[in-house]
Amino acid sequence: MMRAWILPILLVLCGSFVATGLISKGNPGSAAALLLVFVLLAGVNSPLVFPRSISAPEAQRRSAIDGRPIVFWRPGCAYCLRLRVRLGRRARQLHWVDIWRDPAGAAAVRAANDGNETVPTVVVAGRPHTNPDPEWVRGL
C-alpha cells in the first residue's frame, strides 16, 4: 500500500521545499503557484485517480461473469494515467488491478509480457494486450 504513495509524497515534499525557498526569497505568489502544481501532480499520480483496485483472482472471476476487460496498472505509470484519462467515465466499468498491491496481478503481467511488468496490460476474453490504444479499449 505504501509503495503506491511514494511518488505523490515525494512530489509534495519537493514542492514544499522549493516553495519554502521561494518564500524566503520574497516570492510568496510564485511559491503558492508552484506548490499548487506539485500538489496537482501528486494527485494525478496517486491511487486516488484510478478506480478502486481489486485482486487479480477477483478480477478474473468478475470478468468471466460480465465479460468486461481487466486492466493491470501501477501508480506513477504515465501510460496507465493516459489510458485512465482517455477512458473517462468508461474506466469505472473495467476491472482494475494494481500490480504493486497484488502479487498475483504482477505475476499475470509478467506471464503475458515475457517476464516484464509492462503496464498497462489489458486482458480481454483471456487475451492480453500490452499498452493498447485507449480508443480501442473504449470501444470494447
Rank of each mutant, 00 (worst) to 15 (best):
D98T: 04
D98Q: 09
D98Y: 07
D98M: 06
I99R: 04
I99Q: 03
I99P: 02
I99M: 08
I99G: 05
I99Y: 03
W100A: 13
W100P: 02
W100H: 10
W100Y: 12
R101M: 14
R101P: 01
R101W: 01
R101Y: 00
D102E: 11
D102Y: 09
D102S: 10
D102A: 10
D102C: 02
P103D: 13
P103H: 06
P103R: 13
P103S: 13
P103K: 11
A104K: 14
A104M: 14
A104L: 15
A104G: 02
A104D: 14
G105I: 03
A106L: 14
A106K: 11
A106G: 11
A106Q: 10
A107Y: 00
A107C: 01
A107Q: 12
A107V: 02
A107I: 00
A107R: 11
A108M: 04
A108Q: 02
A108T: 00
A108H: 01
A108V: 02
V109F: 03
V109R: 01
V109L: 07
V109A: 04
R110T: 15
R110P: 01
R110N: 06
R110K: 13
A111F: 05
A111V: 01
A111Q: 12
A111Y: 00
A112F: 07
A112V: 05
A112M: 01
A112D: 03
A112H: 02
N113Y: 07
N113W: 07
N113Q: 04
N113L: 08
N113I: 10
N113P: 00
N113E: 04
N113R: 14
N113A: 13
D114W: 05
D114S: 15
D114Q: 15
D114Y: 06
D114G: 14
G115I: 12
G115W: 07
N116Y: 00
N116P: 00
N116T: 05
N116W: 00
N116D: 08
N116F: 06
N116V: 00
E117T: 15
E117R: 14
E117K: 13
E117I: 14
E117G: 11
T118M: 07
T118L: 06
T118R: 07
T118C: 06
T118Y: 00
T118V: 08
V119D: 06
V119A: 09
V119K: 04
V119P: 05
P120E: 06
P120L: 05
P120G: 10
P120R: 09
P120Y: 08
P120K: 03
P120S: 11
T121W: 00
T121F: 01
T121G: 04
V122F: 08
V122H: 02
V122E: 01
V122W: 02
V122C: 05
V123C: 04
V123F: 15
V123K: 03
V123R: 11
V123M: 12
V124R: 14
V124W: 13
A125R: 14
A125L: 09
A125Q: 13
A125C: 08
G126W: 04
G126P: 03
G126F: 01
G126M: 04
G126D: 01
G126N: 10
R127V: 15
R127H: 12
R127D: 12
R127Q: 14
R127K: 13
